[in-house]
Simulated assay, not measured.
Amino acid sequence: MDLDIRGLRVLVTAGANGIGLAIARAFAAEGARVHVCDVDQEALSGLKDSDPAITSTRCDVSDREQVARLLDEALAALGGLDVLVNNAGVAGPTARVEDVDPHDWDRTLAINITGMFNCVRLAVAPLRESSNPSIVNLSSIAGRFGFPLRSPYSASKWAVVGFTKTLAMELGEHGIRVNAVLPGVVEGDRVRRVIESKAQARGISFREMEAELLGNISMRTMVTQQQIADQIVFLCSPRGRTISGQAISIDGDAQSLA
């Protein structure tokens, strides 16, 4: 299927590693022009060698001065903006709410939801000039289920869905569509760390915790970074021109995270 996105100008936050890198590469593979940011300078340096066509800026999305510089550099590199993918996020602490360090709570929300606000508020003006504008915000299945021992993360990901639906209503008259993507249990090192920390907190083995998580998924499987990237590329193509205000789960039909 020709997605007709050659030359699409795309900004992906936290795009030098993990899901963000898969998203950036998926767009680039379809002929889009891509700029990414990340806090990991080593990953950004590696990206210049592995994917020289993808331009980049070091940026912590919770820092508004850094985000302002990011937008300036992205617009200069891309010559405008058609797509913003708000992918930056952190897992936050694993603990009962009474044991959560307030600093960890604040940091999780500062990146996972306030960071999106910081990027969107500056991206709206250039997106209004696009003929195919869209925003995709990365939430999680923790944004539609409670997630015991992960209250900061779950709260932030529920907030992403509310932010997304409100933006879709505000920006629809400008032709800007806004959607949230809610990945399930994603294969990779990050979910392994999450399972390990939750297993430790619960006093059970890694395998027991993994089996419990997969037992709540109808298809009994994790999802891949590429599957998430493919959905986002489709949403941002002209093929997804009337999809907006949606919270789209990619999770193998997860039933809970308890």
Rank of each mutant, 00 (worst) to 15 (best):
A91P: 13
A95D: 07
Y153F: 08
R33Y: 11
G31E: 00
R25L: 13
I23L: 03
P152D: 12
A29L: 12
L149W: 10
V67G: 04
P93C: 06
G79K: 01
G80T: 11
D251H: 07
G143V: 01
H174G: 14
F163H: 13
R193I: 00
I54N: 03
S45W: 12
G92S: 07
D49Q: 02
D189C: 08
A201I: 03
A43H: 04
E208W: 01
F145C: 01
S140M: 03
G172H: 15
E129L: 10
R69F: 07
M219N: 15
L84D: 06
S249C: 09
N17V: 04
I217E: 11
L11D: 00
D189Q: 09
S56N: 01
A14E: 00
R9T: 12
Q255M: 12
Q246F: 06
C59F: 07
L44A: 03
L122C: 13
L167V: 11
I54A: 05
L122K: 12
E42S: 03
I23N: 04
H35A: 01
Q200M: 08
S131P: 14
R193Y: 10
I111Y: 00
L214T: 11
I232T: 05
L47W: 02
S197I: 07
W158T: 15
V12H: 08
Y153V: 01
R220D: 12
L21H: 13
D51I: 09
L171I: 09
A254F: 06
D189T: 10
R192G: 07
Q231C: 10
A254G: 06
V34Y: 05
I250Q: 02
S156H: 02
F145R: 08
C119G: 09
R107I: 09
R69D: 14
K165N: 13
S50A: 01
S244K: 06
A201T: 09
G215H: 00
V39P: 13
R207D: 15
G146T: 14
P152T: 10
I243E: 10
T57Y: 00
G184L: 10
I113F: 05
R177I: 04
N17I: 02
I195T: 02
E30N: 14
G184W: 07
I217Y: 03
Q200P: 11
R64C: 14
I5H: 10
T164I: 03
L8M: 04
V10A: 08
M1S: 14
R6H: 15
Q227W: 04
E196D: 07
G184K: 03
V191A: 06
I135M: 02
P102M: 03
A26W: 03
A16M: 07
A53G: 11
